[in-house]
Design a protein around this nucleic acid. Sequence first.
DNA 1: TTACATTACGAAACCGGTTTCGTAAATAAA
DNA 2: TTTATTTACGAAACCGGTTTCGTAATGTAA
Lengths: 337, 337
Amino acid sequence: MSTINIQILADTLNISKSTVSKALRDSHEISKETKKKVKELAAKMNYSPNPYASSLRKKKSRTIAVVMPEIADSFFSLAINGIQSVAEKKGYHVLIYLSHEKYTNEKKILGEVRNGRVDGILISISKETKNEEPIDKILAAGVPVVFFDRELESVHTASVTTNDYECGYVAAKLLLQKGCRRLLFISHSASLPICKKREAGFRMALLDAGCPEKKGQVIYGTDNEKSNYQLIKKSLAAKQRPDAILASVEKIAIQVYIAAQELGLKIPEELKVLAFSNLETAPILNPSLTTVTQPAFEIGKSAATILFKGIEKKHFRLENERVIIPSVLIERRSTSI
Amino acid sequence: MSTINIQILADTLNISKSTVSKALRDSHEISKETKKKVKELAAKMNYSPNPYASSLRKKKSRTIAVVMPEIADSFFSLAINGIQSVAEKKGYHVLIYLSHEKYTNEKKILGEVRNGRVDGILISISKETKNEEPIDKILAAGVPVVFFDRELESVHTASVTTNDYECGYVAAKLLLQKGCRRLLFISHSASLPICKKREAGFRMALLDAGCPEKKGQVIYGTDNEKSNYQLIKKSLAAKQRPDAILASVEKIAIQVYIAAQELGLKIPEELKVLAFSNLETAPILNPSLTTVTQPAFEIGKSAATILFKGIEKKHFRLENERVIIPSVLIERRSTSI
DNA sequence: TTACATTACGAAACCGGTTTCGTAAATAAA
DNA sequence: TTTATTTACGAAACCGGTTTCGTAATGTAA
């Protein structure tokens, strides 16, 4: 903790601390000579004002919070990159919180950022989250909130998402076009809006193609990679095994590859695979993976941009901002005929 | 910004704010009944104390900063995970800063966390960083700093790294054992200690194997993926092309795969590849990639643990802490004979 | 009954800035 | 020359907590 403060500067120069404060922030009330003296001394003494003292008085923290389920995931790291790029330009600091997909963690986190710690919040909700109360409390406290990717639809605030329904539809359609008939959608959540939309698109594509609804055409993974692996392996080892898998997230796709490899199932000949994924390695997988690639960086960037509007413009109506940035389907070998 | 503060609680209950403050923190000076009243009202009003007011008085922010070159990289996201897991348990908040491999960015960031904003700093330096001044200033201000992965050796403080020299040696040795003779080490920096150590280990293995030192056996990549791709492609297209590549970082390995694919060079038959990498997809690449896998999570966890010792124990001597957590060589198909 | 200790609380200082407001001195306008 | 205005600065309040210290009321020991 630096022991040098504005009072020391003032005493050293035999002026008042108000003068120092104003001089450092280029107030018109202060003469050029005084400003020069003050700034030189400040530089010499490596003085930098305590941000919390300033925050207390100004009621602005110049800090935002990013609340996410996890970080070791291509989508989320790219999204943070996008968020950070905007925050950096604006001169804001970024606090990172991980819910680890638990509602209770998320609730606790949200309780800790409701009290002036941050000027705004970007959040991608946990799988478990259904209750809007923690977020509503934040909004009630006047702190702007923007959802990115995973939203809670019942909360009236801005969101930046991608066209999940369409992507689910298009992905399933591609698999159908490639001649697959026993499609399996492996989702990482039965309740998250993004997953439900992808699932709905998937189901609709099957209906449109005249495929009868079958039970077991959608299964739900967990957060545990091993149990997902078991689940997938079991499903791929069944007599009536799927001939195509659509994975809702990259972590599941990886387990599908491993399970298929383990079982000696050839992709794409015996099993086609398509995944929602931001894996940089998709083009060099064995075989290269067809993906629905989300604009992760742009989602982060756009969400942050909207958040800053909400922070800086008092009468900006966040709840009217519902941005949808389309994902891109990139065909690769894992779905070739 | 929540408008409800300790004064409002006090007024509502017709007691003083000192009593409220003490009651909320279970001071022995306050009677059970008063504590109960205060806590109930606080809960009812969703009161949560302003952390910056508290920080100002206590001279503790319960916040740490993590300064890294980038975040969209498996190593760094896993490291953050490790850091976060410790911070969470300790009840600390985590600020994330990205230097984007630029010294000037890093310097600016370090200037902004020297003033009470954080109680400690975890840093992995940028490629460009050679000057210890910004970090020394922080240490001089009494803020503990711990390096993780990328350290600045001239600064006297704690560091958590991996056994880079040995890994460089072992990796090269493996490639030699597989019959390769024209090894190429592609490094992402000529100056970073971790890269220099890996390179030194690599060179030593070649010497020990009686391979004459050749120029061009080590080349240096940039931060730009396209230019790395060009560099690699050029090198692989040369007459005397390498028969094995050791990549110092996963981003480079990916470009090697893409370039080899583009040139129709078969891995591992015509080119063996080994990379320092934390890619989750290493086992399912085409072909699966032999890696030196760094204990990213553990490095983050260990660095954070040491940092908190430095924060909490006044007389803990950080400069004596030099932890080295070994990496693991995992053989896969990309180096098979 | 007196002296001393304990309990429970409030007033005020404090952390380190920012902001408001008052004012002396210098300058401009009348 | 007098009055109005501008310039440049300082004193003090303020942000919202925490902490120190003083003290009235009650309890306990001598």
